[in-house]
Design a protein around this nucleic acid. Structure first.
Length: 687
DNA sequence: TTTAGGG
DNA sequence: CCCTAAA
């Protein structure tokens, strides 16, 4: 029985570390400089820049070594330490600072003991204050079973929410209840679920409308484990930030700019009581590679304390990365990660305070407020506070994006899976999300800026713009298949410009970490990513992917099952737009006459429709010729044979061969037709 | 993974 | 050649 148990983890949001870490490359720094002048960059460029940094950076530096805390801890379930970590994470998340919390809370409820509160309180990272609320909420539900509940709260809701917080939490708790229903009700069943989500509450409650039934997919595969109850769904929806996520923006900090390192960066909010916030920052910085490594987490965790790695001081110039790696999306179901269907608009913004120049986190409340503004009922998801500074004489507007949040993830993993596998699973999920394609949305003064051609100046984004006025959001690509919810919410958002290829986030790990940690850094920025689930990491060109893949590979050994769902917001697929370098088109290699002959000969013998055999027979050693290539070549040969010699291009193919092509084609077509005749007849007979 | 087709 | 739906 035990073995059978699974854990579902829903991570609502991971935060993506602030993009940049100052340390090494520019990219790390979150700072982006843009010209403010009219001629300068347009919003679109800005977006691209942001996205590029986020996604594009392939490698992140892994400096950190230490222990990772954030996520891992959260993830790790083992021992009390683990619990603590979870708690921590919870706290952090709960920390209201910025957004509510983006973190997740993970509480493990072990048999009947509603330990939650304690755990929360205990959470190391978090200052007790921040978290308590959420924690309580989650805590409230006791689950006899082990219940891991991690949630991020995202909120951008207004202050009201803030007040309501407790109530909300409760609700969420109830949401847990859902789980609980699974778990609690059936005490016998042991299930462990972890749900991490950033849920931003969506003012628009389409969510309500959404019933679990509508989104069965997510869970369906493992019904037992998954939470299907409507309530849960609702909750999540409600919580969820809409598809559009907003995140805090960036502030231009001169000061920050100067700093390099993680720790230094003003981003960190060390000062603030909320540790959670602090934690987040750390995460961000880490390079992806490290992230990958299991150690990665730990390191981050360690780093957290001290440093928040924040984006470095140096200003970065934006660059666009075009890495786009991704491949085809697999069906959602197949994909290990489950997507979350709904996305509403969730938005959360960070409060200004957080955004504060120094990187000082703002008080939670502030955040909330900020959020509120950020996510209007209307549903604009995005929001954030950002500041732009303009130095006199400087026509550039600098932005510093502290972090983007990664939207929730769902992980379904067996109870007996190892912590390591859990970590990997999460990592994979995160990776998938990031790899799915994102696009950036810009919100300025409460409105989405859709005109990519406008300059920053024209838009009003210049040195003197106000802090909260500018926000960026990560939006999922519309491409994704399912996005039932997401669409609704924000389809409006989508309309943005076409996505450009974004580079990948520098460090996935970071993201994750953050996530775990919880909304730590969020304060500033919340981002929502949409995720897709693309299964193929392979395709991903960027280094990240490589790293990721490794991870995943490793993890696989350990983890049997994982289902993660990423949600997709509505959005445009980033990747699609352009194929980044990563996915280069294979070089064109015209077939030589000899190859054509070999092909013709093989087809004459084997017939069409057996391309694999043809490949094996005639091109077994031609690694670059795939059976698809052979098939395509045959197709073109047939076409070539049918057209007049004058219309043919390229290296001329002996007419003799072309004749054979036509002959063989006709023959095999006939054969095929005969087969068809028989089959159908049988079918008819049956009918 | 292959096949089959459209792009 | 690429991309995908189907199988």
């Amino acid at each position: 029985m035990v073995l059978q148990k699974r854990l579902d983890y829903g991570f609502n949001g991971y935060q993506v570390p602030p993009i940049p870490r100052a340390t090494r490359s520019v990219r790390r720094r979150g700072i982006i400089r843009r010209k403010a002048d009219g001629n300068g960059t347009c919003p679109f460029d800005l977006l691209a820049t942001v996205a590029g940094k986020l996604l594009g950076e392939g490698e992140s530096s892994p400096d950190s070594t230490g222990s990772v805390r954030g996520k891992e801890q959260g993830a790790t379930v083992k021992d009390e330490k683990v619990k603590e970590a979870e708690d921590r994470s919870l706290k952090e998340k709960s920390y209201t600072e910025g957004c509510y919390e983006r973190g997740f809370f993970i509480s493990e409820l072990v048999s009947q003991a509603p330990v939650v509160n304690c755990s929360l309180s205990e959470l190391p990272h978090v200052q007790s204050d921040t978290i308590s609320r959420p924690a309580s909420a989650s805590m409230s539900s006791d689950c006899s079973e082990k219940l891991l509940f991690a949630k991020q709260f995202v909120n951008g809701e207004s202050s009201e929410e803030h007040e309501n917080f407790s109530s909300k939490t409760k609700q969420e708790a109830s949401g847990c209840g859902v789980f609980s229903s699974c778990t609690l009700d059936t005490e016998n069943d042991k299930q462990m679920k972890i749900e991490l989500s950033n849920k931003a509450k969506v003012s628009t409650d389409k969510g309500a409308a959404i019933s679990s039934s509508k989104f069965p997919d997510i869970w369906d595969k493992n019904p037992s484990t998954l939470v299907t109850s409507d309530e849960s769904v609702k909750l999540s929806l409600s919580t969820y930030p809409a598809p559009c996520r907003s995140f805090p923006v960036i502030r231009n900090d001169v000061k920050l700019a100067n700093k390099d390192d993680d720790e230094n960066s003003g981003c960190t909010q060390p000062s603030t009581p909320n540790k959670a916030s602090g934690a987040a920052p750390r995460v961000r910085d880490r390079p992806i590679k490290k992230l990958l490594a299991s150690k990665y987490w730990e390191e981050k965790l360690k780093s957290d304390d001290e440093g928040h790695a924040n984006s470095g001081a140096k200003t970065m110039h934006v660059y666009y990365n075009r890495n786009i790696g991704y491949k085809h999306q697999r069906s959602q179901r197949d994909f290990p990660f489950k997507k979350r269907k709904f996305f509403k608009c969730g938005s959360f913004s960070n409060s200004d305070g957080e955004m504060s120049t120094d990187g000082i986190s703002s008080s939670p409340t502030n955040d909330l407020h900020g959020n509120a503004s950020g996510c209007p009922a209307a549903g604009t998801s995005v929001f954030n506070g950002g500041r732009a500074f303009l130095r006199p004489g400087d026509s550039h507007v600098k932005f510093r994006i502290k972090s983007f949040k990664v939207p929730e993830l769902f992980v379904d993993i067996p109870e007996n899976a190892t912590i390591g596998s859990l970590k990997r699973t999460v990592m994979e999920a995160v990776t998938a999300i990031l790899g799915g394609g994102l696009r950036i949305g810009v919100v300025f003064q409460g409105k989405k800026v859709r005109d990519d051609d406008k300059t920053l100046l024209q838009t009003g984004i210049s040195h003197d713009y106000k802090l909260d006025a500018l926000g960026f959001s990560l939006e999922p690509n519309p491409v994704q298949t399912s996005q039932p919810l997401g669409q609704d919410c924000r389809s409006s958002v989508l309309p943005y410009e076409t996505p450009q290829p974004l580079t990948r986030c520098p460090s996935p790990s970071t993201v994750v970490h953050t996530g775990i940690q919880q909304g730590i850094s969020d304060d500033h920025t919340g981002t929502s990513l949409s995720n897709f689930l693309e299964s193929d990491h392979e395709s991903a060109p960027s280094p990240h992917y490589a790293a990721l893949e490794k991870i995943s590979a490793n993890s696989r050994a350990l983890v049997p099952l994982t289902a993660v769902n990423a949600e997709a917001l509505s959005a445009v697929p980033l990747r699609k737009p352009k194929r980044s370098e990563a996915t280069q088109r294979r070089i064109r290699r015209p077939f030589s006459v000899s190859e054509v002959e070999a092909l013709v000969q093989a087809v004459e013998k084997l017939g069409t429709g057996r391309w694999r055999d043809v490949k094996l027979r005639a091109f077994d050693n031609a690694k670059h010729r795939t059976y698809v290539d052979l098939k395509d070549k045959w197709k073109t040969l047939v076409h070539t044979a049918r057209i007049s010699p004058q219309q043919r291009r390229g290296e001329p193919v002996p007419q003799e061969l072309l004749d054979r092509v036509l002959t063989a084609h006709a023959y095999w077509s006939q054969q095929q037709a005969k087969q068809q005749m028989k089959q159908p007849s049988e079918t008819y007979l049956l009918l």
